[in-house]
């Protein structure tokens, strides 16, 4: 990690993202924004507010309503020298741009013999918490981490959001940048201008000795709260924030798992075929004989998400669920 955190200043996750965009656009003329409502409206979640006024219509582009166009045009521009940051309003709508992201952007560098790069960032927001229903709440990071050629980022704090977005913009490969909709108002230590967090490096957000919780995005905060509760009972929990889901920093996970010998993988996405399976499998492969208990997953069940907020909340692992899962893991 380069750069510094300012202990004196706090900033929201949303404002930290805007700082990253603003700074990268100031520093590099080739950085452009495009998407629905990103300009005049300032983005559906107000991340790009003020950037049209600052950088003008040449670099902040309100597009027609076509996700295929947004990602496809970003790719076209990226191949010839731009560094586009495309916004897709909801992760769920990336499905409409799937060909351009999965078949095109992810494969350009390989299929064109390394003659072209695809340095684009696709920003999406995902997740539950607002009762937004089946087609506005899904956590689909696992799909994209499964595609060679794509990088996938899912930060949890304002400083990481800023540092990772800056790294993603500077990266020469296509990056899917996932923002949890519940995180936008969350405040945290601000990062200074040169704060860049390299892709592919996990962060231990809390050190502990008894159990390792591996998680990312909004659930980092749920894990930290659970760890705090458990510490009152003398249980020491280490929280590993993956931050980047492709590439996965398994070194950090294995180091932590090797020392605590108990691992809980926690995510909001449903269980089957989720990234928790990949992490659990790797821990099992590498540390089978050294673990004190089987790796445990705590996730949403394999259901379609409802619009009813109470029901939605019940389906997603919360602090109490994490506390119980950790206790269970310790007793096994």
């Amino acid at each position: 990690m380069t750069g510094t955190l300012s202990s004196a200043r706090t900033v929201s996750f949303r404002d930290a993202l805007r700082e990253a965009l603003h700074e990268e656009m100031e520093a590099d003329e080739s950085v452009i924004l495009l998407g629905e409502d990103v300009g005049r409206y300032g983005g559906a979640y107000a991340v790009s507010r003020g950037l049209l006024e600052r950088f003008g219509e040449r670099r902040v582009i309100d597009t027609p309503m076509s996700e295929a166009l947004i990602v496809g045009a970003a790719l076209g521009a990226a191949m010839v020298g731009a560094r586009p940051v495309a916004e897709i309003m909801y992760m769920d709508f990336v499905t409409l741009a799937m060909d351009n992201l999965v078949n095109q952007a992810a494969k350009v560098h390989y299929m064109f013999g390394g003659q072209f790069n695809a340095p684009l960032v696709v920003r999406v927001q995902q997740g539950t918490g607002r009762g937004a229903g089946s087609q506005h709440s899904q956590s689909l990071e696992g799909w994209f981490a499964h595609v060679p050629g794509l990088k996938v980022v899912a930060p949890s704090t304002p400083a990481d959001a800023k540092g990772l977005l800056k790294a993603a913009i500077r990266d020469n490969d296509p990056v899917l940048f996932i923002e949890h909709k519940g995180l936008y108002p969350r405040k945290g230590a601000a990062a200074e201008v040169d704060h860049v967090v390299p892709l592919g490096v996990a962060d231990v957000k809390r050190t502990g000795t008894d159990v390792t919780i591996v998680t990312w995005s909004n659930h980092v905060h749920i894990a930290l709260e659970a760890a705090e509760r458990l510490s009152a009972d003398g249980v020491s929990v280490e929280v590993v924030d993956m931050r980047c889901l492709a590439p996965l920093d398994m070194t950090t996970v294995l180091d932590s798992a090797g020392s605590t010998r108990r691992v809980l993988v926690l995510h909001e996405a449903c269980r089957t075929g989720g990234l928790g399976a990949e992490i659990a499998a790797t821990v099992g492969e590498q540390l089978f004989g050294e673990l004190a208990a089987p790796v445990r997953r705590l996730t949403a069940p394999d259901v379609v998400l409802p619009a009813h907020t109470e029901l939605e909340r019940t389906l997603i692992p919360d602090v109490e669920d994490v506390v119980l899962a950790v206790r269970d893991l310790l007793s096994s």
């Binding site: 069940p301 394999d302 379609v304 409802p306 009813h308």
Partner: peptide, 27 residues
């Protein structure tokens, strides 16, 4: 009325699905 929480498992698939049955019991 609010929906029955277990109803979330009812219409994921048209046919009985062993994984969903298992998760329904757990839930």
């Amino acid at each position: 009325p609010d929906p029955d929480p277990l109803s979330i498992f009812d219409h994921v698939y048209a046919e009985r699905h062993p994984l969903l049955e298992e998760e329904r019991e757990q839930f």
